[in-house]
């Protein structure tokens, strides 16, 4: 009879497993990929069916704003990674600074997105508008997918802002520290995913013209 007596059975619900937490996060990110995967599949089918129309519709998008947002989001991925590295090294101040910068970039992304969408709206291009419905089917589908995919991505950016702000508060309050940073790391993973999805959205909508 071997008794494995590692925990004193008192606080069994206070249980910390950083590797487990990270594993859970990766699994969750996997489901996010599949969520967007469905949309990428739909995009692929319709692009194949309406190559010409997709080409024409894509000309309407502003590559400049798209590029700017790509740069912003990539940089924010760097700053969140730096924030984790800083905290691991025990530099709380730098970590907070970098995380705040990440949030600034996230807001900049959303502001750009806002101007981009509202410009489209003012040209009368939005789902169900007369202007859009007068276009050929392929272009209706292109803009439909554009709004759904960038919209869902934007929603993820917003959720990211909420998560990262919460984490920021927790770092300030010393709830997340240099030897207990799994939550920060996992939020960073989420933020990288948001970035990664954009890396695919950008060429599919803005660059293939």
């Amino acid at each position: 009879m071997n008794i494995h007596n590692e925990s004193a059975a008192v606080h069994h619900h206070v249980h910390r497993d950083d590797i487990g937490a990270k594993m859970g996060m990766w699994l969750f990110l996997f489901t996010e990929l599949l969520l967007f995967g469905g949309l990428f599949l739909v995009y692929a089918v319709y692009r194949y069916q309406h190559t010409e129309q997709f080409h024409l519709a894509a000309m309407e998008l502003n590559t400049g704003i798209g590029t700017l947002n790509t740069v912003i989001l990539l940089t924010s991925s760097l700053t969140v990674a730096l924030s984790i590295a800083a905290l691991q090294k025990g530099n709380k101040f730098l970590s907070i600074l970098m995380l705040s910068l990440t949030l600034v970039f996230a807001f900049m992304f959303m502001i750009n997105k806002y101007f981009e969408w509202s410009a489209k709206f003012s040209h009368g291009i939005y789902p169900g508008s007369d202007e859009l419905l007068s276009l050929p089917n392929g272009q209706i589908l292109f803009f439909g997918l554009y709004y759904v995919m960038t919209g869902l991505h934007g929603l993820h950016v917003l959720i990211g802002i909420i998560i990262l702000s919460t984490i920021l508060v927790m770092i300030i309050k010393n709830k997340i520290t240099f030897d207990n940073y799994a939550k920060l790391e996992n939020s960073g993973l989420y933020w990288h995913l948001v970035d990664l999805i954009w890396i695919f959205l950008f060429p599919l909508f803005y660059l293939i013209q």
Binding site: F36, V42, Y46, P127, G128, N137, G144, V148, L152
Partner: peptide
Amino acid sequence: IATPVIGITIVLVILERLFGVGI
């Protein structure tokens, strides 16, 4: 592996009903 796919499909049907996206 499977559930996210129905998730997005359902969202697309809801959006179709609300906004007429066309997908």
